[in-house]
Design a binder for these strands. Sequence first.
DNA 1: AATGAATGAGTATTCATTCAT
DNA 2: AATGAATGAATACTCATTCAT
Lengths: 232, 232, 232, 232
Amino acid sequence: MPRAERERQMMDAAVRTFGQRGYRAASMDEIAELVGVSKPLVYLYLNSKEELFAACIRRESEALVAAVTAGVEPGAPADRQLWTGLVAFFAHTAENPHGWAVLHRQARMHGEPFAAEVTKMREALVAYVTGLIGATAREAHGTPDLADRDVVNRDLADRDRADRDVADRDVAGLAQALVGAAESLAAWANETPGVSAKEAAATLMNFAWTGLGNLMAGERWTEQEKRETAHL
Amino acid sequence: MPRAERERQMMDAAVRTFGQRGYRAASMDEIAELVGVSKPLVYLYLNSKEELFAACIRRESEALVAAVTAGVEPGAPADRQLWTGLVAFFAHTAENPHGWAVLHRQARMHGEPFAAEVTKMREALVAYVTGLIGATAREAHGTPDLADRDVVNRDLADRDRADRDVADRDVAGLAQALVGAAESLAAWANETPGVSAKEAAATLMNFAWTGLGNLMAGERWTEQEKRETAHL
Amino acid sequence: MPRAERERQMMDAAVRTFGQRGYRAASMDEIAELVGVSKPLVYLYLNSKEELFAACIRRESEALVAAVTAGVEPGAPADRQLWTGLVAFFAHTAENPHGWAVLHRQARMHGEPFAAEVTKMREALVAYVTGLIGATAREAHGTPDLADRDVVNRDLADRDRADRDVADRDVAGLAQALVGAAESLAAWANETPGVSAKEAAATLMNFAWTGLGNLMAGERWTEQEKRETAHL
Amino acid sequence: MPRAERERQMMDAAVRTFGQRGYRAASMDEIAELVGVSKPLVYLYLNSKEELFAACIRRESEALVAAVTAGVEPGAPADRQLWTGLVAFFAHTAENPHGWAVLHRQARMHGEPFAAEVTKMREALVAYVTGLIGATAREAHGTPDLADRDVVNRDLADRDRADRDVADRDVAGLAQALVGAAESLAAWANETPGVSAKEAAATLMNFAWTGLGNLMAGERWTEQEKRETAHL
DNA sequence: AATGAATGAGTATTCATTCAT
DNA sequence: AATGAATGAATACTCATTCAT
């Protein structure tokens, strides 16, 4: 069996084991046995538990970023792109629960070598979202009336004047909130019968998009004013 | 030294150690040393690592729920209650980073005895938020015109006139998203210097409340006026 | 509570615990808890696990010897005395399983301080049996015809000439065989429905008495000759 | 060093240690050191102290049964078979004092997994003896006049003409007594210097065979003649 | 390309025992 | 007459890692 293939098998087993048991509780024995090889071979190819874990994180990071960014149509409106990305995110994490567990739960609780990799991934996603929102803001200059495009975008209407700097911290906070909401929703959707992943994504989209838009615009509750006035 | 006091010390040390290192990596030796007693005493009082961990989770759970629900004024408008609760939540998690880490990061990755306790706490919070949203919905009279939007909104389509009959599932989904976002934000706020509880609460409030408002009309967030005047 | 009473309680609990669990597996905690006192009191009264165990062995030894020798009528024929002693032995060990376990199973497997005490007891019983048989032999001079007294004694008929020394080793071997047979029979009788302790004693008596008599007489298979001749 | 060899060494050391110290007092450290390997290797090969102990019991059980049954000539008269078996039994236990200690002293005092194995062995021996006695009974024609004896004998009263219908229970009781006596004698012979296997076997044979003969007629013990002549 | 044999360094847990009161 | 608080020392068991082949 060629080395590359064996390495892939090993990482698959490792991701599964790390995801289920956590870094500490995962044992090299179990990983080797899962692959059906002897432990020394795992060490020969992947050097140490630490390096193996790091490799898993790197691989799963890249796979997740790739999955999220793969389906987007570059020309599409930002909200559509986000929607596509969110669905891809939900789909990928649902199909890859162990990989997602490694990234989200395991990697963060163990010293610097690991957390850094996850931070990198998170930054990639945040940058992606930030880019989307920025693009939307820029588009908005030319298309002031977004209300009838779709509801997702209706919240971005007042963003024309949003040229002020959005603090990095705000964006990071948003990303955290978004991911947290997504994870929580995904878990809930999985254990609640009759809630599909797409519905969960839709719920999140509605829940989040307005807030995202408002924050990017430096505004707060702008939509509510509209609705309030609409109501009055 | 009286037993109750010693037990408290032990739980403090345990929460700190479990929060920092994780369940597996935490060692009873370290906990005992942190308290300044010998290991057998820890076992005499708290029986086993597992029971100690469970006790930590229970204590921190109850403390968190108490902190969140303590400051709310029952008669106050829902958004104010939510705001109060969020600030309390972020303040408590900021003051109790290890306890929060135990609840959020460690407890969920280890078999049923532990995860169940966290689930209980989470359900308490979700129930609390659900109550708030339900109350808001009932208070509301008339909603903006949200019909005929895209698929993302189709779940919400017929909800315009839904005074009190916001589907439980939708509310639960929103509450899950909110709690997940809050949990995630809290973790991030704890590890990011310079983010105050109020800022985190504000971020989440702004991020989430509008989305909630998309579902239900009639929010009463008092800080709106500022921005309203800004808009006018 | 007076000290003597407490000590008795402690030894009762200790015998029970040592008998059930063995010396090593028995814990001072369990013994103290069984009595309902604190561990330091056990140490105050009985000094150490080792001394406690030794005290148990001594007490149970003496109780057993007393029980076996209590019922005998000094004037009765030796075989009757043995029969009485055997029944008493079976009754005592059946009523005192823990004490018997301590003596027979636990005490012998732990270094000298303990085994010596058991050896002492065994020697007492062996001496007793030896005395009985010797007495019988002496009686036999005056009553050559024992055949019609009872079956138990029929095997001793030819003992008149038995004035030769019975080697100590033979007697000890006999005692071992007798006790082993008794224990085995007792266990078997307990777990086989319909076999009473007395029946077991009778079986043993029949099984053993002939052999005992033969050996004391320095003879072998004398009965068989008789029966063979009787048959022919 | 090949695994099978190492495992044998480990079991040897374990039997020795368990036999000397008892199950609880034996330490895996000591066993490993006795073999000259590290503890993890013992665990790798034999999994746990419990399994190691069970394996020892099984091995020694089978060895003992094999030794006892190996030398018997199937066609030989019952008493000769018993004699052969007894000599083999005492020889084996004398050569294997630790193994015998494990079986006789240690295994019976620790919960079901262990005692069961010993019970199995004991049943094998009892069945063997039962077979011998049954065969003897069947061979026998006519029995001495044992009727009208005292209570001790009342169980045997109507058995005179019992060619083959010796109640199973009686035979089983005798077999139990015999095996118990043998076990006890073996233990004693092992710890008493100067007692050969043959002497022990002879003691037991003489002790027991007459009693057996009381139940059944027609034994064929060839050494009788000597004593017969002595009597005549 | 692959493994059988082996271990150093830990980790949870238990227990007999003491001291101050 | 009695105990609450506390521990030194041991013990079963695990795991990442290496070496010779």
